[in-house]
Write a protein that binds this DNA or RNA. Structure first.
Lengths: 137, 137
DNA sequence: CGTAATCTCTTCCTCAATGAAGAGACTTCT
DNA sequence: AGAAGTCTCTTCATTGAGGAAGAGATTACG
């Protein structure tokens, strides 16, 4: 990666972080809540214990974090079939507020994508998939 | 943009937000602080008033936000030459902690980039530039 | 000039999020 | 069966960020 690519990447990451936090605000979520919601979105349903391990929070705050997300309609609690002490936290489709908050950005990005050829789009989506995997914390 | 592309994009944005907030924590910064630092990075030096307008904070919290960033060595305050009431807040190069926090991700992304041809990389960087512009809040 | 407007910063207060510690329910192991 | 361990949730106290209001310094305007 050349210095120039570094520079581009740095600015790009900045823009994505800005965008993400902006979306979080639009949804009435804090940064940690958005963080947790994305964890659930990327890694699938998990227990509060697993979520607390991944967020770095202790169990108390995690419970209330899930409370907030559940009250806002972003996730759902389901009893675990295997272990009745456990609870499964799963994202509930894509919440309306989140979709609406992301809509303008999607619209703009859609216009950007429209400029590329089918071949180029394949390259971009391939990169997205690989980068998502590489950035997974 | 097909539904499939939507899905890929959504997961990708999620990964970037996760990555950004993770980096913020590594630097000992809150989400808002990282947000502001990225604003300064992307839009260049600005006054506390402009920063408060862009973050949505009132002036009080903005002053303390700048205090935190300055104490951590991320930005510098300079008196404005034009208007002696004003202050210019400018990022101080790239802070070591931030660079270190981003280093592992850069390493991994560098490996991802290495898989592509020169032509494909051009496409990717072109996309980054356009997407950065499109996502600017 | 002098009054109003602008800009940053300070002070006080409020509220939300977090950590620590422990309770209650359930499972596992001996 | 019983003891120990696990998992979630609750309670209490603390910390930190943010808003509101106003002070102090400077600039712009009549």
């Amino acid at each position: 990666m050349s210095t120039d690519a570094h520079e581009i990447y740095r600015r790009y990451v900045g823009a994505m972080v800005l965008h993400g936090l902006h979306a979080a605000r639009e949804c009435g979520l804090g940064g940690t809540d958005m963080y947790a919601l994305n964890l659930l979105d990327l890694n699938g349903p998990m227990t509060p214990g697993e979520l607390s391990a991944q967020t770095g929070l202790t169990t108390g705050p995690t419970t209330r974090l899930i409370d907030r997300l559940e009250a806002a309609g972003y996730v759902r609690r389901t009893p675990s079939p295997d272990d009745r002490r456990k609870v499964i936290v799963e994202p509930v489709g894509e919440p309306t507020e989140l979709a609406e908050a992301l809509a303008p950005a999607r619209q703009k990005l859609g216009e950007v994508f429209a400029r590329y050829s089918e071949e180029e789009r394949r390259t971009l989506f391939d990169y997205f998939a690989r980068a998502t995997e590489a950035l997974r914390p």
